[in-house]
Nucleic acid binder design. Structure first.
Length: 867
RNA sequence: GCUCACAUAGCUCAGUUGGUUAGAGCGUUGCGUUCACAUCGCAGAGGUCCCUGGUUCAAGUCCAGGUGUGAGCACCA
C-alpha cells in the first residue's frame, strides 16, 4: 500500500476543518490570486528548484506573439499545450523552463501605426524616422503589458524573469552579430535580384507576403514585328519592351529550326535583340508555344536568363511606371502602356488574337496593390553556398564539415535530429526547403533591426532611400552576379561606425531574421551583455545556453512552419551548430463551429479568450482547447463546448466537497499502514488509477494531449465519481474515505497540467501546504494493476446497468425483491450483493446459477455479454 | 498544376504498433431532487466507420484505385 498512501503523511486535516469548499466553483474569484501565488513562489524559474536534483531539462521558448494587439484564441491553444507540457515536466522534477516574450513584428506593427497616423492626418514621412520609432515603441510597450497580462490569465507558468523582446537592446545586439558573422562567411551578400515590389508601399515583400487574386485577363497573341517568325502570347504586352529572348520547348517540332538564332526586331518602335532559346518549362500547348522572355520582370524568366546568359533589360520602375528610354511609352503607368501597345500592334496588323483567360494576380497583402517583380539591390542570405561546420559533435553526426544552409537544414529533419509532429508535415518541410531561394532579408521599413552596415559618405550619393533612379540605371547585365559594391567603403559590424563620413544602411531586416534566433538569443547572458563583441564568447559565457539549449519542443501553429520554424533551424544550425529544438509540435487553426477561420474582420465569429475565461474559467477554456483534438488538426470551437468543460471543473470541485464532508467525521486518522484494501471496488479503482497514471504519462510523453485529457476526464467523472464515490457511500468506513482522499489527491496532480487553477485551488484545502504546481508527479505502481479486479468489476457494473435498465423498462419500484439467475460467476455476484442492491435499488434474494441463458433478472432474460 | 491531410452517431470529433460487442461531448427521448454536484443522476434511441477492390486468421486502422472536402506550395508566359 505504501506508494499511494504515503500521501497521507502530508495530509493536513486541520486546514480542511477550518475552511469549507463553497457549493460551486467560481473561477474568476480565484484565478488571479492563484496565478499570483505561482508567480510569488518563484517555482516557474528553474533556478529556484535546483535543489530537487533535476536530471533532465525541459525547455520551451514560447512563440512570441506580435506586439500589435491582444491575444486571440489561437494563442490560447498554443499556450495551453505548451503549459501542459511544462507543468507535467516541472512536476516530474525536470529542470523546466517556459520562456515568454513578444515579437516586434516589423511590417505588421509599422502597418498598424501608419494606419493610426493616417487617421490623424499625418504620416511617418512627415514625422521623421526618429519620432516615428518613438511612437511605435510606445505603442508596442503598451501592447506588451496587455499581452503579458493575458498570458497570465491563460495560466501559462512561464518564467517572467527571463522575458524577452525581439527588438530589445540585447536581442538587437545578437541580430547584428549574426548578420556580421554571416557576412564574414559570405552567407549574406548584397545583390540585385528580382524581388516582389509593392509600388505603393515602396518596399520589397517576402515571397510569403504576396497574396494571389484570381482575375480575368486578356491573353494577347501577336508577333513582335513582321520580320520575326514567331508569334507569342502574353497578358502583359508592356513588359515585352524588356524581352531579350523567346523560349520554346526543345521538343516542339514547329520551332526547332529557330533555336539558337538571334533576331533584331522593331517592337512598336523599340528595338529588341531576341535570341531563340530552348526551355523544357515552356508548355507547347499554351498560347503559341513560344514565350517572350522578360528577365527583369518575371521570376521564371530571370532564371532562364541566368541559365542562358541573357541580358536583363529593365522596363518598369519602382513607381510602377515605364522607365525612360522607351519613347512614347516612358512615364506611362503599366496599364496605359499596355493599351497603347495593343492598339499599335493592332494597327500594324501584328495582333493575331485576344482571348479572355483567368489568371492569378499577385497583390500586396497589406494594400492589395499589384506587385511588380523587378530587380532591386537588396541583402540576401545565401542558402546554397558552402560554409564550414565548427562543432565536432555535429560534424560527427553529419559526417562532413562542409555544408550549405539548405543541406544541413534538410539533414536535421531527415536524420531525426528534429522530429516533426504530426509527421506528415515533414514532407511539406522538405518540399519547401528543397525549393528555397536565397532569402531576401532587407526591408524598406523603419521599424525593425537596422541593417548593421555602414557606407562611406562619397558613395552614399548613389544610395538613398527610396532606392534612387541612379541605381536603376546601374543594374548589371546579368542577374545573379554578386554585385561588386559600387561604394568605396563598406563596414559591417556590431558597434556603429560614427563620424568619418560613415552612414548606416537605411533599411531594416525582415522580422523573421531576429525571430529565427529566438530559441537561443533569449538565453544569452543578460548581465553586461554590451561587453560581448563576439557571439562565440557570449555563448560561452551564458550558463542558460548550456542548461536549456537545444530547447525541447517548439510548439506553434503549422502556418508558420516555413516563415519561422524552418528559419530557426537554418539560422541556429549555422551559428550554434546545433538544432534549435528536438521536437516541433504543430497545432491547427481554431475555427468557429461552422469550420470558418475566426477573423478580426468578422468579430461575430470570434471567441474571445478573456471573455470565455471570465465566464467559464480558464480551466474550462484550456480543456476545450485540448480534448477532442489531435496535432495538426483544426479545432472547431463553440461556447457550448467550453461550458461543458466548466461543468467538469465543477464536478471535480464537488467531489472535493463530498470528501471534505465525509472526512470531517473522521476524528482519528490512525495509522495508514492499517488501511486494508479489501473490497472488489477498492482493488478495481486502484488498478484503474494506476493504469491511468501509466497511460497519461505515456500519452503526454508522446504528445497525445487530447487523449491524455480525455482519459482523465472519463476516469474522474465516469469511473471515480459515478462508481467509486457511490460505492464509498455504501462501504462508508474510514478506510474507504482515506483511500478516496488519496486517490482524489492523485487525480488533482494528474489533472493539474490541464486544469491548473481549479486543481491548485482545491489543493489549498486538501494539500500539503505547499503548492500543487511543484508536487511530485505520480508514478504508476505496476503491481497494483490487476486484470482480474478490472474484469470482475466491469461485470458488476454491467449487471447493475442491466438491473437499472430492467427496472426502468418494467417500472419496478425501488427495493423490490428480485431473483437473479446467471450462467456462471454466481459467487462473485453473491459477494457483491450489497453493492448491487444499493446501486441497482433492488433487494436480491437469490442468486442462482443456470445452465441456459446469460442472465435472468426477476424472471426476465437479459442479453449479457461478459459472464 | 504539384503536394499533403481529412471522410466514423443529428452536430463536433477521438480511436496509439491491425485484435473482444467501434467511443466521447453536445443535441435528442423518457424518468428522477437517495443528505458532493440540476454546472446533477439513471435509462434509451441513434453507425453500411465515403465507395470499390486487395493483403490478413483478423481491417475504422495497412495497400491500390475512385469520389468528396479542406489545406499548403507553385503559378504560366
Amino acid at each position: 500500500m505504501s506508494g499511494v498512501l504515503n500521501l497521507l503523511f502530508s495530509f493536513n486535516l486541520g486546514i480542511m476543518k477550518d475552511m469549507e469548499l463553497p457549493k460551486a466553483y467560481i473561477p474568476k474569484e480565484y484565478e488571479d490570486k492563484i496565478y499570483k501565488k505561482w508567480e510569488n513562489s518563484g517555482y516557474c524559474n528553474p533556478d529556484n528548484l535546483e535543489t530537487r536534483g533535476q536530471a533532465r531539462s525541459f525547455t520551451i521558448s514560447m512563440p512570441p506573439p506580435n506586439a500589435t494587439g491582444v491575444l486571440h484564441i489561437g494563442h490560447t491553444l498554443g499556450m495551453t499545450i505548451q503549459d501542459i507540457m511544462t507543468r507535467y515536466h516541472r512536476m516530474r522534477g525536470d529542470k523546466t523552463l517556459l520562456l515568454p516574450g513578444t515579437d516586434h513584428a516589423a511590417i505588421a506593427t509599422q502597418n498598424v501605426v501608419e494606419k493610426m497616423l493616417r487617421k490623424e492626418g499625418t504620416s511617418r514621412h512627415r514625422l521623421g524616422r526618429k519620432k516615428f520609432l518613438e511612437l511605435t515603441e510606445n505603442y508596442v510597450e503598451k501592447n506588451k503589458s496587455t499581452i503579458n497580462n493575458q498570458t497570465k490569465k491563460m495560466g501559462a507558468s512561464c518564467d517572467w524573469s527571463r522575458e524577452a523582446y525581439t527588438l530589445s537592446d540585447k536581442l538587437s545586439r545578437v541580430v547584428s552579430m549574426q548578420f556580421k558573422q554571416m557576412y564574414d562567411d559570405d552567407l549574406i551578400y548584397r545583390g540585385t535580384r528580382i524581388v516582389n515590389w509593392c509600388p505603393r508601399c515602396c518596399s520589397t515583400l517576402a515571397d510569403d507576403e504576396v497574396e494571389y487574386k484570381e482575375q480575368s485577363a486578356k491573353l494577347y497573341t501577336f508577333k513582335y514585328s513582321n520580320d520575326f517568325p514567331l508569334a507569342i502570347a502574353t497578358t502583359r504586352p508592356e513588359t515585352k519592351l524588356g524581352d531579350t529572348a523567346v523560349a520554346v520547348n526543345p521538343h516542339d517540332k514547329r520551332y526547332q529550326k529557330y533555336i539558337g538564332k538571334t533576331y533584331q526586331v522593331d517592337f512598336v518602335g523599340v528595338p529588341l535583340k531576341l535570341k531563340i532559346i530552348a526551355e523544357n518549362e515552356v508548355n507547347p500547348e499554351f498560347g503559341t508555344g513560344a514565350a517572350g522572355v522578360t528577365p527583369a520582370h518575371s521570376f521564371a524568366d530571370s532564371l532562364m536568363a541566368e541559365k542562358n546568359n541573357l541580358a536583363v533589360k529593365k522596363v518598369i520602375g519602382q513607381d510602377g511606371k515605364i522607365l525612360a528610354g522607351f519613347g512614347k511609352y516612358s512615364n506611362l503607368k503599366t496599364k496605359e502602356a499596355r493599351e497603347k501597345i495593343v492598339e499599335e500592334l493592332e494597327n500594324d496588323g501584328l495582333l493575331e488574337s485576344q482571348n479572355d483567360i483567368k489568371n492569378n494576380l499577385s497583390i500586396c497583402y497589406r494594400c492589395h496593390t499589384e506587385i511588380e517583380p523587378l530587380p532591386s539591390l537588396q541583402w540576401f542570405v545565401a542558402v546554397n553556398k558552402e560554409f564550414t561546420l565548427k562543432n565536432p559533435a555535429l560534424i560527427k553526426k553529419y559526417g562532413k564539415k562542409e555544408t550549405t544552409l539548405k543541406e544541413i537544414s534538410l539533414w536535421a529533419v531527415k536524420s531525426g535530429e528534429i522530429k516533426i509532429i504530426p509527421e506528415y508535415f515533414a514532407k511539406t518541410y522538405f518540399h519547401w526547403m528543397e525549393n528555397l531561394r536565397d532569402w531576401c532579408i532587407s526591408r524598406q521599413l523603419w521599424f525593425g533591426h537596422r541593417i548593421p552596415v555602414y557606407y562611406r559618405k562619397q558613395a552614399i550619393s548613389n544610395f538613398q532611400f527610396p532606392i534612387s533612379k541612379q541605381i536603376q540605371n546601374s543594374i548589371p547585365d546579368r542577374i545573379g552576379d554578386k554585385i561588386q559594391n559600387s561604394m568605396d567603403d563598406i563596414y559591417v559590424g556590431v558597434t556603429p561606425k560614427k563620424g568619418g563620413g560613415w552612414v548606416q544602411d537605411e533599411d531594416t531586416l525582415d522580422t523573421w531574421f531576429s525571430s529565427a534566433l529566438w530559441t537561443w538569443s533569449t538565453l544569452l547572458e543578460k548581465k553586461n551583455f554590451e561587453k560581448f563583441n563576439d557571439l562565440k564568447e557570449w555563448l560561452k559565457n551564458s550558463p542558460d545556453i548550456k542548461k536549456f539549449h537545444p530547447t525541447s519542443v517548439m510548439e506553434t501553429m503549422h502556418d508558420i512552419l516555413f516563415f519561422w520554424v524552418a528559419r530557426m533551424i537554418i539560422m541556429t544550425l549555422y551559428s550554434l551548430n546545433e538544432v534549435p529544438f528536438k521536437t516541433v509540435y504543430l497545432h491547427g487553426m481554431v475555427c468557429d463551429k461552422h469550420g470558418k477561420k475566426m477573423s478580426k474582420s468578422h468579430p461575430e465569429t470570434c471567441i474571445e479568450p478573456i471573455e470565455m475565461s471570465q465566464k467559464y474559467g480558464t480551466d474550462a477554456l484550456r480543456l476545450s482547447m485540448v480534448l477532442g483534438n489531435a496535432a495538426g488538426n483544426s479545432l472547431r470551437l463553440s461556447e457550448q463546448k467550453i461550458a461543458g468543460f466548466r461543468n467538469f471543473t465543477n464536478k471535480l470541485w464537488n467531489i472535493g466537497r463530498f470528501i471534505q464532508m465525509k472526512i470531517k467525521d473522521i476524528k482519528d486518522i490512525g495509522d495508514i499502514k492499517d488501511i486494508q484494501l479489501e473490497t472488489l471496488a477498492d482493488k478495481w479503482i486502484i488498478s484503474k488509477l494506476n493504469s491511468l497514471i501509466r497511460e497519461v504519462a505515456d500519452d503526454l510523453e508522446n504528445f497525445r494531449f487530447g487523449l491524455a485529457g480525455e482519459k482523465l476526464y472519463d476516469f474522474t467523472w465516469h469511473e471515480f465519481a459515478d462508481w467509486y464515490v457511490e460505492i464509498a457511500k455504501i462501504q462508508n468506513n474510514k478506510n474507504t474515505y482515506l483511500l478516496i482522499t488519496n486517490y482524489y489527491l492523485l487525480l488533482l496532480k494528474l489533472l493539474h497540467p490541464f486544469a491548473p487553477f481549479v486543481t491548485e485551488k482545491i489543493w489549498e484545502y486538501f494539500g500539503s501546504g505547499d503548492l500543487l504546481i511543484i508536487e511530485k508527479w505520480p508514478e504508476a505502481d505496476e503491481k497494483k494493476i490487476t486484470d482480474q479486479a478490472e474484469q470482475d468489476f466491469k461485470l458488476i457494473k454491467e449487471l447493475i446497468s442491466a438491473i437499472r435498465s430492467w427496472r426502468k423498462e418494467k417500472a419496478v419500484q425501488p427495493k423490490e425483491i428480485i431473483k437473479i439467475k446467471v450462467a456462471g460467476r454466481e459467487e462473485l455476484i453473491k459477494n457483491q450483493k450489497e453493492v448491487i442492491n444499493r446501486l441497482g435499488r433492488v433487494e436480491t434474494e437469490e442468486v442462482k446459477n443456470i445452465d441456459k441463458g446469460d442472465l435472468e433478472i426477476g424472471g426476465v432474460k437479459i442479453k449479457f455479454g461478459n459472464l
